[in-house]
Computed example of a mutant assay.
Amino acid sequence: MKNTFVAMALAVAGTVSGAVQEIRWNDAGLHAQALDVAPGKFAEVCGPLKAGEQVTWSFEADGPMNFNIHYHEGDKVSYPARENGVSKRAGELKVELDHGYCWMWSNKGTQPVRLKLELRHKR
């Protein structure tokens, strides 16, 4: 798994300054990235999921980040997960509603933060 993560991370490494990116699952159901999040900016990856699906997720950053998983229903935003000031977390999202879901990290600090993330899709 680590070798796959490293290869995927190198393929999509970059600097992010507030862009929303589409989740791109590979044939094994993996989306992995490594990127730099500029001070005061965010990184967000989003994609559609169906009820009954699961996504195992993990991330590691070299500085504190505000993190959440969210989806929108009109003007309402729901948060299956949300934490502030964290640099490493892992969990599993069990999808209850057909929706577009987003994993989001905000850098509230004054220095760039290196972020490595991995999402593994289970149908």
Rank of each mutant, 00 (worst) to 15 (best):
F67L: 05
K88F: 00
W105F: 07
G52L: 13
G100W: 10
L30N: 04
P80A: 00
H121N: 11
E83Q: 04
G74P: 02
V12W: 00
A11Y: 10
V45Y: 03
G52F: 08
R24K: 07
G63Y: 01
G63E: 01
L49T: 10
G14L: 11
A90L: 11
E73P: 01
A38I: 05
R89A: 10
M1A: 14
V86C: 08
S106M: 09
Q33A: 05
S58R: 07
V37E: 02
L93R: 12
K50E: 03
S106L: 14
P80W: 06
G63M: 04
D27I: 01
A34S: 01
L117F: 01
W25N: 06
I69R: 03
R120I: 05
E22N: 15
A19C: 14
H121T: 02
H72Q: 14
H72C: 02
H99A: 12
I69H: 09
G40H: 12
K41R: 15
V95K: 12
P39H: 10
N3P: 12
Y101W: 14
H121W: 03
Q111G: 04
A43D: 03
K76S: 15
S58Y: 02
R114A: 07
K94C: 15
E96Y: 01
H31I: 08
W57H: 00
G47H: 06
K50P: 08
V20D: 12
V55M: 09
A81T: 13
G74Q: 06
E118F: 04
A43C: 08
N66S: 05
W57I: 03
S106A: 09
H31V: 06
E22K: 15
A19L: 14
R120S: 07
W105P: 15
Y71I: 02
W57P: 00
R120M: 03
D75S: 15
Q54P: 01
D36S: 13
K88D: 03
G29N: 05
K94G: 09
R82Y: 07
E22G: 07
V16L: 00
L10G: 13
L35M: 15
P48Y: 04
D98A: 15
N107I: 09
S58V: 06
N84G: 13
A11H: 11
H31M: 14
K108N: 09
Q111L: 12
C102H: 11
E96M: 02
D98V: 08
N84F: 13
G100D: 11
S106I: 09
Q33T: 14
G18Q: 06
A81Y: 13
E73K: 04
N84S: 11
K88A: 07
R24D: 15
L49M: 15
V12K: 03
V20L: 01
H72N: 11
S106P: 11
W25C: 10
W25L: 05
V113L: 09
N26R: 07
Y79T: 05
D62Q: 06
R82G: 11
E83V: 14
